[in-house]
Amino acid sequence: MPELHDIFTPEFMAPMAALGVAAAVTYFWRGLGVAVSGKIDKDSALFRWVTCVAYALLAGLIARMILLPIGPLAELGLGQRAGATIISLAVFFLTRKNLLAGVASGAVALVLMAKLGPL
C-alpha cells in the first residue's frame, strides 16, 4: 500500500484544485437554475425571455467554438475550420438532415485539411 502523501502529491493536488473550482462554479449555475425554476411561471413573459436567452447563449457558444476555438483546434486556420463546417452543412442538407453523415464528413474534412493544408 502506498502512503497517503505518495498519492496526494502537489502534482496531483494542484490540478485537482483547479478541477474542483471549475466543477463548483459549474454546479452553482445548475443548482441556481433548479432553485429559481420553481419561482418562474412557465407561461410568463419572463420564462419566454429566459428561453430566448438560453438559445442565444447556445448558438453563440457553438459559433465561437467553431470559428474562434480555444484548445487544440486553435492551432488550425480559420479557413480550415470554416471549410470543414461548410462541408458538414452541405452533406447534412444533401442527405436530408442526416446528423451522422453531416458530423462525420465535417470531422474527416477537418482532419484531412489539418494533414494536407487548406483546400
Binding site: Y55, M65, P72, S88, F92, K97, L99, L110, A114
Partner: peptide, 17 residues
C-alpha cells in the same frame, strides 16, 4: 483535433435539425 471538432459541429446540426 478532428475528435474535438465533432462536438461543436454536432451541436450546430442538432439545433439546425
Amino acid at each position: 483535433m478532428g475528435l474535438v471538432f465533432l462536438n461543436p459541429v454536432y451541436f450546430m446540426l442538432v439545433f439546425l435539425a
